[in-house]
Nucleic acid binder design. Structure first.
Lengths: 153, 153
DNA sequence: TATGAAAAACCACGATG
DNA sequence: CATCGTGGTTTTTCATA
């Protein structure tokens, strides 16, 4: 309901952002609150949508997609229909984990998770067979220096 | 121990990737396995590191960082020392959620989470005061078409 | 703070293929 | 002989009074 998050909320969130398996007991101790008060705050933040989900993060290498590719896309189709088709293609391809429409001269950026470079070629064909793009270029990730789902608070 | 994941493991993972609050009972029912067999598989995947963590995902808008910026960086310092400084700067700045070293002509790509465009200027100054870069450009995310932490299985 | 209900954590045995 | 299922115990966590 309320959209105002105080310092204690922030501290609770920063704990849960890193480890959602922590019990209410452990969290309440860390933020110096009673178990109950802490539990109510968490419930409230879940209800208001501040906490959107709790998910498991997997090891990309161990599940067989060690390669991350950033795909930069430019289009000359600036119609609603094209955008709809593009969004549909994006939602259908599970290798695409993020898709963002950008300002500036590059129109779209995709993050794609793949097994290897050969898989990129397959992906490239599947994508471009679904939607016309005027310019597409791939940049491969050599090293992950940082990769977190935790937002700054 | 074993690094071989079968179809059932994949189904368990795909459930947990989307919702880590699901009880073992519920999961075991979905994958048509006994509670215990299912529990053993999950434990094994936690132990082997296939499941890396369980985290809470927050709403960027409700938490006060609705703006996502992709920062493209080129450097002419290709020394170990520079890389170390860069990594240190990246790890210190919480607004940077991902930092990747790339192939091709752009050296690094950062994903940065911010409150607004003004905050980008502050961020830009803090970053460039810590490390010298020969070229840096920002591209702002206008629309999130897709954004998932779930890897393809 | 107390408390009942639920889920998780773990163990042991026999069955199965 | 790995892995499953059943059925049990103990402990923890939840969620509310």
């Amino acid at each position: 309901m309320s959209e105002v998050l105080d310092t204690i909320d922030h501290r609770i969130l920063s704990i849960l952002q890193k480890d959602a398996t922590k019990s209410v007991d452990a969290i309440s101790e860390q933020v110096a609150l009673s178990r109950n008060a802490c539990w109510r705050r968490i419930k409230a933040m879940e209800a208001s949508g501040v906490i959107r989900a709790r998910v498991a993060l997997l090891d990309p290498i161990k599940v067989g997609c060690p390669l991350t590719v950033l795909v930069l896309i430019r289009t000359d189709h600036h119609s609603d229909a094209w955008r709809k088709d593009f969004a549909a293609a994006v939602s259908v391809l599970p290798e695409i984990t993020t898709a963002q429409r950008m300002t500036g001269d590059l129109d779209y950026v995709l993050t794609v998770r793949l097994a290897d470079v050969a898989a990129y070629d397959t992906f490239y064909k599947r994508l471009t067979s679904r939607i016309p793009v005027s310019d597409i270029s791939a940049s491969f990730v050599m090293e992950d220096i940082k990769d977190t789902t935790a937002l700054p608070l």
